[in-house]
Design a binder for these strands. Structure first.
Lengths: 342, 342
DNA sequence: TGATCATGGTAATGCGAATTATTACTGGGC
DNA sequence: GCCCAGTAATAATTCGCATTACCATGATCA
């Protein structure tokens, strides 16, 4: 097993010192360091001939940088089944990492005794990377806190609330998107709106609900809430003319269950707040919004490189694109005066 | 910026030497090394309290291992579009890497000036990993040769022929699978078979064709060949009762084009040699075989860890699972004496 | 003619952990 | 009292690279 080349080897071949090789390699010319063009040439030639490549580990140790960005997920990045929650994010992450000239490290080794991965187990390897992106709605609070106290550069995609300190994040602006949809519904004459879903728990749910409520209040219309389960009776009983579903999957279930009783959007308009989290087969063209997952991935990496360079705690919400769809129509005649179509 | 903890810090806190901390950490007790239970306890407590974690880079430098496995692909791993060629492989790769307790490095930085990635560019980072898996039918020959001469542990998934030396690989046994399908067709009474496709170029095509030819010869039936383009007339003109398509996509095109002229499998049986490479929408239940992509990924990692440990040049072909499907039926009456159903 | 300076390079040191070689101490045997 | 064996821990070195501090040489100047 031929030991791999070191700068020492190159130095010997070029008849210079290891220092010189390092200097040439890193193109250090400023300040007190000087290398004559001839020497530089000679060293470069040897490097080219041998195809020498610096050991990244040693490099990292010496200068504390790697050009490796880590991605931590709590489940397998490449799921065997399912329509793949992580994928869209990763598309953006990979793109941007490539542009930054970095490599991407997937922390597949982080597996606790149980099923779920942990960032800080007995033998965490986060520090292999210069920083990392956290993926998943259910990022562990302790892990997060530890990342903060250890001052490990990271950006969370999704999770946002404090964990022993402010968390750097990229999120989607669910509140605004939900609000915009409410506004659109009201413009179409709806005066009684129902929010179907928990409206609490993960931040993303709370945000949607808040956006809904704020808009409803601001516009002076009625907003009610039905529990998380998509119970057809409960929803219809509210007397609302439009239903906002927290989860697209629930909307699908609801529509299937209500098929024989009402017609959408004639009798009831349906709006979904974001694309499916749980994979659901459905070809219904819902009115709702698109979570900019890919863009979130990109942005997370951009922010991460910033954090690595200069520190800081960037926090950003990205706008969601509204989907026209066909499940939101003007309110029926019973819903009050019909305004002109917007 | 609080500097991160080092073994030195732990040592100070526990009132011992850095050596002792390292020893405790790695549970080294054999041979000449001895640590009293009390000391060990003390050190462990400090480690627990502080949550100290060894710097992976330093570790790597000292012991020459990383527990990082690299994956090299010539295009983005996470394609924005398409049904994703790499994905199934990666599922297996990730699974197995996780089991091995390693992390996965995606070489996203390897991008030449052009569009296509190169392993050995001016500043290759392959050596970041202990070894790597190469993915893609079109692995660059020079890159391969370089990997061999540089003695970098790797396993190629797919590509197989020499590149200045034998290449360690995991492949799919297309030849056997194609042969098995020929046997099945012949058992169903087919006596004239046509192979539709190039039959050359990438090894995988050549293998399929060879498997087809060998089986045809062995069974003493007629095997003919139609060029790569799925020209309906050309295929029908051969007078064959069953057509073997190198590419599933071509079979789809063919069936669409021939829809009004013949019925499958009544007039002509159709067999596809492997699942689609190019993404094609089709719900035809083709008779053919499944490329064990996920298993190939798994196996590649297994072999890779072997190579890293002990060197060697493992070469393996994995069996493909036959798919019964519904496009292969007994040969029509004009095809000669009908044998008993197998 | 010695002092000053620019030039081109090198020796030495540090990064954090693993490992090898070495030391300090204790108790036993004679 | 001296040597040996056994135990417990440490000092010193190594990994490959980056960086700082330093040294040699020759030219320039007063």
């Amino acid at each position: 097993m031929a030991r791999r080349l070191t700068q020492q080897d190159i130095a010997r071949m070029a008849g210079v010192s290891q220092t010189t090789v390092s200097l040439v390699l890193n193109n250090r010319a400023e300040g007190a360091v000087r290398i004559s063009p001839e020497t530089r040439e000679r060293v470069i030639r040897v490097i080219k001939e041998t195809g020498y490549i610096a050991d990244p580990a040693a490099r990292r140790l010496a200068e504390g940088r790697n050009r490796i960005l880590g991605v931590f997920t709590y489940e397998a990045v490449f799921p065997a089944t399912s329509a793949d929650f992580y994928h869209p994010f990763l598309v953006g992450i990979e793109e941007c990492t490539e542009e930054a000239g970095c490599d991407l490290l997937l922390f597949t080794s982080a597996r606790a005794s149980g099923r779920r991965r942990r960032i800080f187990d007995q033998d965490s390897r986060v520090r292999l990377a210069d920083g990392c992106v956290l993926l998943g709605h259910t990022v562990d609070r302790d892990d997060l806190a530890r990342l903060i106290t250890d001052q490990i550069p990271f950006v969370s995609v999704g999770r946002r609330d404090d964990a022993g300190g402010p968390v750097p994040y990229v999120g989607a602006d669910y509140a605004s998107a939900a609000g915009a949809l409410v506004r659109r519904a009201v413009a179409l004459g709806h005066r009684r709106l129902v929010y179907v879903g928990a409206g609490t728990g993960a931040e993303s749910w709370a945000d949607r609900h808040r956006g809904f409520l704020d808009a409803v209040t601001e516009l002076g219309v009625e907003g009610v809430k039905a529990g998380g389960a998509p119970d057809v009776d409960a929803v219809l009983a509210t007397g609302a003319t439009v239903a906002f579903f927290e989860e697209q999957a629930d909307a699908v279930t609801f529509m299937a269950a209500a098929r024989h009783r009402i017609s959408v959007p004639a009798d009831l308009s349906v709006v979904t707040l974001g694309s499916a989290t749980r994979p659901v087969r459905s070809d219904i063209d819902f009115t709702g919004f698109l979570i900019p997952r890919r863009e979130m991935g990109r942005r997370a990496v951009e922010l991460l490189t910033g954090v690595i360079e200069n520190g800081g705690t960037p926090q950003e919400l990205l706008p969601c694109e509204l989907i026209e769809g066909s499940t939101l129509a003007a309110a029926g005649p019973g819903a009050g005066p019909r305004p002109p179509a917007s």
